[in-house]
Amino acid sequence: MNKSLISIALLLASSTVFAETEYPENRVLRPLTLTDGTISVGGALAWGEEKDQRHVALNLNAAYGLTDNLTVGLGGLNYRFLARQDNDKGLELAVGLGIRGYQESTINGDSVAYGADLNGKYVFDKNLALIFSVGYVKWDEEKLKNKDEYRYSVGLQTNIAKDWTATANYTYRDLKDFNQSGANEISVGVNYALSKNTDIGFFTGYSDFDAQENGYKLDNSYDRFVGIYTTYRF
């Protein structure tokens, strides 16, 4: 898990309200993009450990639905090219473009990851969905040769009680020009829809990506992490 401290700076020309296509409260039925005119702001506080070093990270985010199919956020763009009718059952696909990570190194200089990915969601019913993605990441190195990475993810979302949704996800990172040839990441989380506008939840996970072995400082990668978050939409 990469961490970043981001200050929210989202300027809008006019006030907005929920669009005609309403964003579902049920997390399983939610689309991959925000609905037209919807603003989402949120934050997460994470505690992590890497080789017995402990860190705390604050992550802030903001996003805006330019249309039902195009969302712009601090991390990049998401465009949905295949939608589920009325956000019901079936397949949904989107492409994303943006920042995918950050690493620091005292000797080798910093590195920023830019990537593009194909994201998918298949909703079986109102209580179960399969989520997946395939992505390419370019690590732009300050001093070293740039690195490539391919990411493959698959996961499940399921409602475990009224307003409670559990998510489990696995990602394989195919690393090129790193000292490691590959890395695995797993994460699980639980989301509570406090209201139509507000979510709260927690997450935990594990990664075997070794920042130190790959020439970076330990500050931006965790072996193990746990955190809490909240999101508000209007």
Rank of each mutant, 00 (worst) to 15 (best):
M1G: 15
M1K: 13
N2F: 13
K3Y: 12
L11P: 12
L12K: 13
S14P: 03
F18M: 11
A19W: 03
A19G: 15
A19Y: 03
E20L: 04
E25F: 01
E25W: 00
N26V: 08
N26R: 09
R27G: 09
V28W: 04
L29G: 05
R30I: 06
P31F: 01
T33E: 07
L34S: 08
T35E: 02
G37W: 02
V41L: 13
V41Q: 09
G42T: 05
G42W: 00
G43E: 06
G43Y: 01
G43I: 05
A44W: 00
L45V: 14
A46H: 12
Q53C: 00
R54L: 04
N59K: 07
A62W: 04
A62Y: 09
A63D: 04
L66I: 15
T67Q: 13
N69T: 15
N69S: 15
N69W: 01
N69F: 06
L70Y: 13
L70N: 13
T71V: 12
G73P: 06
G75A: 05
A83T: 14
A83Q: 14
A83G: 14
D88E: 15
L91H: 05
A94Q: 01
G96W: 02
G96I: 04
L97S: 09
E104L: 01
S105V: 07
T106Q: 15
I107Q: 03
D110T: 10
V112S: 13
A113N: 11
A113S: 15
Y114L: 15
Y114K: 08
G115E: 11
G120P: 06
G120A: 06
Y122K: 06
V123G: 08
V123K: 10
F124P: 09
A129F: 10
A129N: 04
I131S: 00
F132C: 02
F132E: 01
F132A: 14
S133Y: 00
S133A: 05
S133R: 01
S133M: 00
Y136P: 08
K138C: 10
D140S: 14
E141C: 07
N146T: 10
K147F: 03
K147E: 07
R151D: 07
Y152C: 07
A161E: 02
A161I: 04
K162Y: 07
T165D: 04
T167G: 09
N169L: 15
N169C: 10
Y170E: 02
Y170R: 02
D174H: 09
L175K: 07
D177A: 13
Q180D: 12
A183M: 10
S187E: 12
V188M: 11
V188F: 07
V188A: 15
Y192D: 07
K196H: 05
K196F: 00
N197A: 15
N197S: 15
T198F: 12
T198E: 05
I200R: 03
F202H: 01
F203E: 12
F203M: 07
T204N: 02
G205Q: 09
G205D: 09
G205Y: 04
Y206I: 12
S207G: 09
D208A: 11
D208R: 02
D208E: 08
F209V: 05
D210H: 02
D210M: 04
G215T: 04
Y216G: 07
S221P: 03
S221D: 08
D223C: 10
F225E: 10
F225V: 08
I228F: 03
Y232K: 09
R233G: 05
F234K: 03
